[in-house]
Design a protein around this nucleic acid. Structure first.
Lengths: 147, 147
DNA sequence: TATTGTTATACTCTATAACTATA
DNA sequence: TATAGTTATAGAGTATAACAATA
């Protein structure tokens, strides 16, 4: 049930649910390739964007992104190794570490947003701007983020 | 970056790509639970539906569903153990096995389609019938299954 | 030489357990 | 007792390698 570049199997393409999962997987791969071109994984960018609002404790990063604590340890390690973020002592709680966004991280966010916006334009090219807006609206209704 | 039942993280919900992956994952889980209620995994049903057109060689099942050969071995093993399909000798090629759909498999397909249609109705309940049709149309354009 | 089915193996992701140091 | 961070480990799911039988 893997998803490749050829398009969905015709026999199953009339099921909306199958189309949905195929389009999402296809879009996710496209997005992942775009971010990889600036040396990031999707999760890296998600963490960086959260840190843009200020330093954050790792445990709260895990909660906000719905990843398990050990995963966040790895992600922060990688971001630190890339020089995009770093751990510092927490001012009030000696158990916790504050994860800070570094200037290089701010710049990398801008690059990532540039390539990901371009990737989105490519992916949604089959739709007119009006259709793309409609698509977003319908997704938001399904996600329950609008009434 | 896991997806749970609470709805997408508000901070990321304005990105169409993130909404898309969240909705697809949510829908996939809903579909998976529905099929599990009749004892099937999504891949099981996909195989059974393909076999409805007649017996098929395992290698072609793998190709059609884009799964690797060892995965198909496991799936056919499971379907055989469930009594829904079985391996028989291929009439012309002694290397290959013909996978046949059994009467119990035909009945199970009907049950699975019943619960999966109900699951789809539940999942797409936030949309009007007209919107649901539009959503399918836009997905089909993105998947390239219509011009 | 290529293909079918199978077994064995590896690799990634996801999830849990256990431990420390604090609170 | 509970929480933060880390390490270690376990489990799916996915992908590759290698093999015997046959074409």
């Amino acid at each position: 049930m893997d998803v490749n570049e050829k398009g969905p199997p015709p026999a199953l393409a009339q099921w909306t649910g199958f189309l949905l999962s195929w389009v999402a997987a296809s879009g996710g791969e496209h997005y992942g390739r775009a971010l990889a071109s600036v040396g990031l994984k999707p999760q890296h960018l998600a963490v960086l964007v959260l840190l843009r609002d200020g330093p954050m404790v790792q445990a709260r990063l895990s909660e906000r992104l719905n990843v398990f604590k050990p995963v966040m340890v790895t992600l922060v390690n990688e971001l630190a190794e890339l020089g995009l973020a770093e751990r510092r002592a927490h001012p009030h709680d000696r158990r916790a570490v504050h994860v800070h966004l570094l200037p290089a991280g701010v710049r990398r966010i801008r690059e990532a947003e540039r390539v990901s916006l371009r990737a989105a334009d490519e992916f949604f090219a089959p739709l007119t701007p009006r259709q793309r807006q409609t698509f977003h609206h319908l997704l938001a209704k399904l996600a329950g983020t609008e009434t």
